[in-house]
């Protein structure tokens, strides 16, 4: 609050009071947010480490005689194990595809002039106008024709396409902040254009690559709709869609097991984002944006 803002106000709080009020407001909203966002996570985690009976009893805290890790044994179940493997393959595939394509197209947008460049880049963003379910039905028909249903390649292509507009834009803007002279000095030294790209440009885009990787990871790991529609066979299903499938296939849902599975689904992105968050922020802190 500058002096100019408070000038002429009829009711004025002393700086000390304003400061306290501000801190109070900050704390209250922070607590609210944590409770709102955190409780479902807590509930999932709390129930994942209880016995079936413990789940039925409810209660905020698991009691000593109901605490157990036995629910995690569900991973050894061949179906669940297959889901995990499928999810991992698809996610790794999407992250790598997104990184490769965003680097190349981001570089192209940043360094070359071609007709309708800006229009093309804006057109990319149109993809975000449609919800996954709208896109997945026609994709199902197309993938069916191409024989890409139930294949890793089909889902990797789809999810990469969904992550791409954001990733390409981020990389484009990030590469714009790398002075062209740094690259030119490599050309002068005798490096062909691709070599300068690999040696000089790519290493400097690390924050943007990490931001893109996290984004693509989140999209691929958490995707439900596309996986559910495009991977109809049970063997090909990824974790989120598989969870849903398991829930529907059982007459008596064993909630503790589902919570354990959900927790395992949630942990990798959490860990991934936690360790790379400083890079994520760097990726967004682009001077030229």
């Amino acid at each position: 609050m500058s002096d100019a803002d408070s000038f002429g106000r009829s009711v004025r709080l002393s700086f000390r009071h304003r400061n306290r009020l501000y801190r109070l407001g900050l704390s209250v909203s922070a607590i609210l947010l944590v409770v709102l966002l955190g409780f479902p996570l807590y509930w999932m985690a709390a129930n994942a480490v209880r016995t079936r009976l413990g789940v039925q009893d409810g209660g905020l805290l698991p009691t000593p005689d109901t605490v157990t890790l036995e629910q995690f044994a569900v991973v050894t179940d061949p179906t669940v194990g297959q889901y995990l493997i499928n999810s991992t393959i698809v996610t790794v595939g999407v992250v790598l595809t997104v990184l490769a394509i965003s680097l190349v197209s981001g570089y192209g947008l940043a360094r070359f002039e071609f007709p309708y460049k800006i229009a093309v880049a804006r057109f990319l963003l149109l993809g975000y106008m449609f919800s996954p379910i709208v896109l997945s039905i026609p994709l199902y028909l197309i993938w069916d024709r191409l024989g890409l249903l139930n294949s890793y390649l089909g889902l990797i292509l789809t999810l990469s396409a969904i992550s791409m507009p954001f990733s390409v834009w981020l990389m484009w803007k990030y590469i714009q902040t790398i002075p062209e002279s740094v690259e030119a000095s490599a050309w002068v030294a005798g490096a062909p254009r691709w070599r300068a790209f690999v040696d000089i440009v790519v290493p400097q885009t690390k924050p943007a690559m990490i931001a893109n990787a996290i984004f693509a990871f989140a999209i691929a790991w958490g995707d439900f709709t596309f996986a559910y529609v495009l991977m109809p066979s049970n063997d090909a299903t990824t974790f989120p869609a598989g969870l849903f499938r398991l829930l529907g296939s059982q007459w008596d849902a064993s909630w503790a097991e589902f919570m354990a599975m959900s927790l395992m689904l949630t942990l990798p992105p959490l860990v991934f984002a936690f360790f790379l968050q400083s890079y994520l922020l760097k990726g967004f802190k682009i001077r030229a944006l």
Binding site: P179, S181, W187, V188, I200, P203, Q204
Partner: peptide
């Protein structure tokens, strides 16, 4: 001839060292 084949040395205004 492209710049790579000219064998020149060029010192840029912004120095252009490779930061990484």
């Amino acid at each position: 001839a492209p710049v790579q084949q000219r064998g020149v040395a060029l010192l840029f205004q912004d120095i252009a060292l490779y930061p990484h």
